[in-house]
Simulated scan of single mutants.
Amino acid sequence: MNLTTFAFILTGVLLNAAAQLLLKAGTNALGGAIHLTAQNWFATGIKVISQLPILAGLACYAISVVVWIIGLSRADVTLAYPMLSLGYIATAIGAYLFLGEVVSVQRMVAMAVIIVGVALMART
């Protein structure tokens, strides 16, 4: 995989991770868990889609799809798709830094395993 292809793949992964963080920030701004009922689904939907972080997260998703398609056009899917696991790491770091979530030692070890796996995959 050349540097340009890797940049497209990584950008797609990072945009996807940013989308997750923005969606979570949007739900946090709504007060946490969303509870839908037959009576409140429309009003709740309006509240959800009116949150700027949620709209930004959806925009990140849309852009990430375009970037991802460009990356896939340049790389084997068997190489590109495992790179998505880097999104777990980016999301965990972002959640720690921006959302105040705890990243346990066990999660850090799991992220290290992912990094080793992606590095091995990328060398093929």
Rank of each mutant, 00 (worst) to 15 (best):
T44A: 10
T5F: 07
V67T: 03
L21P: 02
T5P: 04
M83Y: 03
A110K: 03
S50L: 03
A95T: 01
H35R: 06
Y81R: 08
I69R: 11
I34P: 05
V102N: 08
L23E: 13
L84T: 13
Y96N: 11
I63P: 05
R74E: 11
L36T: 02
T78E: 14
L58M: 15
S104C: 05
I63H: 08
A43W: 11
V77H: 04
V65N: 13
W68K: 07
N2V: 08
A95Y: 11
I69Y: 09
Y61M: 14
A18V: 12
S64L: 10
A59E: 01
I9E: 12
V66L: 14
I63L: 15
G26P: 00
A90F: 06
A80W: 05
W68G: 03
W68E: 05
N16C: 11
E101T: 14
K47Q: 11
G26Y: 03
I89E: 11
V67W: 10
D76G: 07
V65T: 10
P53N: 06
I34E: 00
D76E: 10
A7R: 08
L3H: 09
V102P: 09
G45F: 06
A17T: 01
I63Q: 10
I115P: 10
V103W: 03
L10S: 13
G32V: 02
A56L: 14
G31D: 03
V109E: 12
K47V: 04
V77W: 07
G57H: 03
L72F: 09
M108P: 04
I115Y: 08
L58P: 14
T11A: 12
A19M: 14
A110I: 00
V116F: 05
F6P: 07
A112G: 15
Q51S: 09
L15W: 05
K24N: 02
T27K: 13
Y61E: 15
F42G: 02
Y81A: 07
V48P: 00
W68R: 03
V65W: 14
V103Q: 11
G87W: 01
L86T: 05
L14M: 13
N2P: 05
Q51E: 07
R74D: 02
G94H: 05
A119L: 15
T4D: 11
L3N: 10
G32H: 02
L72D: 01
Q51N: 09
N40K: 05
G71V: 04
V13D: 01
I46F: 06
T11R: 01
L21C: 05
C60I: 13
A110G: 12
G87C: 05
